[in-house]
Amino acid sequence: MSVPVLRLGDVLIASIQAALTDRDLLQLRDDLSDQVGRFRARGVIVDVTALDVLDSSAIRTVRDLAHTTRLRGARTVVVGIQPEVAFAMVQLGLTLEGVATALDLDEGLALLRQEDA
């Protein structure tokens, strides 16, 4: 299963679907990193609203993905972490430090615009 990446101006939006395997997430990391260059994107939004579980391995992949696209020059925001998933992440002891997060897509876009100004 591949993750569709939408383009909105100079922002790339990847909406991760439920039941995504770790391999799909790694593929997304590589695709996004490539597309940031191809489309000269300034921002990346990773929407995890549909994800009902983020285990330690998926959290690491999302974190690495965000760091990778940031190194490629695009600000990266993870949006839509569900409340239950957030509780579970705290219990796991993994809270995505160093990664920008926002409530939802709108807030994520607002955050990118704000940083652009």
Binding site: D52, V53, L54, S57, P83, E84, Q91
Partner: peptide, 17 residues
Amino acid sequence: SKTEQTFIATAISEVAR
């Protein structure tokens, strides 16, 4: 509860992985 379901699903994911 939905939170407990998520905790159980996440723990299963860890040991299955």
